[in-house]
Amino acid sequence: MRITFDNPTTVPAPAGVYSHAARVDDGGTLLFLSGQIAVDEAGELVGEDDMTAQSHHVLSTIRRILDAHGASFSDVVQIRTFLTDMDRLAEYGAVRRHYHGEQHPTSTTVEVSRLFHPGALLEVEVVATVGSDHPTG
């Protein structure tokens, strides 16, 4: 088994001592993405108090990390979302459907009191397969 940690140049550098992605190659390949929030390259929050804008930014960042590893949202097998206000779930859900389409990975969504960056409304992490044919249903 080989584990590779990566920070694609297509997304802002991590805000701390962690990697954006961990790739596990053991016959098949799994890709684990760290939680992503809506910050730009300068570490500034995108879309203050705007769940739709933050959701688009977060999922666009995730798409760029997946792309850097030869994967897409159709390869996502698990998504975990942390929201600071569960009453705004529908706003996030509408954006998520745009990115995931008809693909429905396993999912966990929880409400948290706050995230590490002031003003962040959500954090999203995913697990995806890379370079494998998998049945869809």
Rank of each mutant, 00 (worst) to 15 (best):
1 M>Q: 13
4 T>Q: 08
4 T>F: 11
7 N>K: 10
7 N>P: 04
10 T>V: 13
13 A>E: 10
13 A>W: 02
13 A>C: 03
18 Y>P: 12
19 S>Y: 12
21 A>F: 09
21 A>C: 12
23 R>A: 07
26 D>M: 00
28 G>V: 08
29 T>M: 04
30 L>M: 14
31 L>R: 10
32 F>N: 01
36 Q>M: 12
37 I>M: 10
38 A>V: 07
39 V>P: 01
40 D>M: 05
43 G>M: 03
45 L>Q: 07
46 V>F: 11
47 G>N: 08
49 D>V: 02
52 T>V: 14
52 T>R: 11
54 Q>W: 07
56 H>A: 01
56 H>T: 00
56 H>F: 03
58 V>R: 08
60 S>W: 00
64 R>H: 15
66 L>V: 01
67 D>L: 02
71 A>C: 11
71 A>H: 12
72 S>P: 04
72 S>M: 04
77 V>P: 01
80 R>N: 14
80 R>W: 06
81 T>I: 15
81 T>H: 06
86 M>S: 07
87 D>F: 04
89 L>S: 10
89 L>N: 08
90 A>E: 14
91 E>Q: 14
91 E>G: 06
91 E>C: 05
94 A>L: 13
95 V>Y: 13
95 V>M: 08
96 R>T: 06
98 H>S: 13
100 H>V: 07
102 E>V: 00
105 P>Y: 06
110 V>P: 00
111 E>Y: 03
119 G>W: 01
121 L>Q: 13
122 L>N: 02
124 V>D: 01
125 E>Y: 00
126 V>I: 07
128 A>F: 00
131 G>K: 08
131 G>I: 05
133 D>W: 05
136 T>K: 10
